[in-house]
Design a protein around this nucleic acid. Structure first.
Lengths: 188, 188
DNA sequence: TTTAACATGTAAACTGTTACATGATTCT
DNA sequence: AGAATCATGTAACAGTTTACATGTTAAA
């Protein structure tokens, strides 16, 4: 059950409401770490509160409840982080598509590779923006790592994705070049 | 429902039984693309066969049934691959841990980073082995891309993971060096 | 002969998505 | 006044895991 640890981890950085947490999933976790909807987040927050791992520290307008992590909650994230999970769950639909790419013909493969390069570029721009903002914050507080590790990981993995797609395009070029040479030889 | 497309994609390369497919999930898909257990695979194969997307081409010992993809199945994978999914599902417990890493203290962060470097090295060795075997096969059949794209993607992403962990360790070193200098200044 | 690997299946419990539901507050 | 956003919730359904269940074949 990683959802509860994702929530506890986010609350370990600073207090937030269910609405805030939903937003943070959307903007930072969703793309490469974990996916969750508000319909799953709200009930889980209620369970965490009932178990004493988080607590309501503020009630605002529109029934807004701001939660903070408790000492028990902090211990639970720590325990989870330090317990290595040999077969961690991985689900990534984009990588699955990459895996099955070769069932298409060359022209279609190229089309998808170009699309992925464009997507990686867009994500890279977004992540670099986030990194700039984090660097800004770190001018003051040198020991605030939250966000920095994750953003840098995101940057590097999108970079790797882009380079992989370019490599794959070169492979196709070479294979086609090879094909042309062979047919020229046959025609002689 | 990506599971059925994963199965169809694997069968598009060559026929296999539920048992074979379970193994292929374990050795190649599980770590970075998609996770599935036999208890989910067998019923799904029966559904795919009932819908005519795959068919039994051989019955062997111990009730073994070898499935092959049908023309309708091939069309379905193709359709799925060419339909871009803007918000693809991503769940990766290791990346989630990376994200929440900063809630630990420096010594603990270092310990986890070293563990991840060791894991990345082990995976890199495994993937490089797979790449060698694929290169061997490709000596004969230049146009067999299946496995190559995926393995190269795996190699690059584990490489990126390793380099990220080394970068994070350097960040901690610098911060600690910085801390020492500050306290020396204060003591003067 | 006994152990490991092969081979498939089902049911209950749990996790996650989609759709429905409601209302408050802020901004234009 | 109306639209957008804030804010939380539930129910039905779909997807996934865990545990149980069973029997075969090959190898040591």
């Amino acid at each position: 059950m990683s959802l509860r640890h994702a929530l506890l981890g986010l609350l370990a950085d600073h207090p937030a409401s269910g609405y805030d947490l939903t937003r943070r999933f959307e903007v930072s976790l969703q793309k490469y770490a974990w996916h969750a909807r508000h319909s799953q987040i709200y009930p889980e927050l209620n369970r965490l509160a009932a178990e004493g791992l988080i607590s309501v520290v503020e009630e605002g307008a529109r029934g807004r409840r701001t939660y903070a992590i408790t000492e028990a909650g902090r211990e639970e994230v720590r325990r989870w982080l330090l317990t290595p999970n040999k077969d961690a769950v991985v689900r990534n639909e984009t990588v699955l598509r990459m895996f099955l790419l070769s069932t298409l013909d060359h022209a279609e493969i190229r089309k998808l590779l170009h699309e992925w390069i464009a997507e990686a570029d867009a994500e890279l721009e977004r992540v670099c923006g986030a990194l700039d903002r984090i660097e800004e914050l770190r001018r003051e507080q040198k020991d605030r790592w939250f966000g920095l590790f994750a953003a840098e990981y995101g940057r590097r993995s999108f970079q790797a994705q882009r380079e992989w797609a370019e490599w794959a395009l070169r492979q196709l070029d070479e294979a086609e070049q090879d094909g042309v040479e062979r047919s020229e030889k046959e025609n002689r």
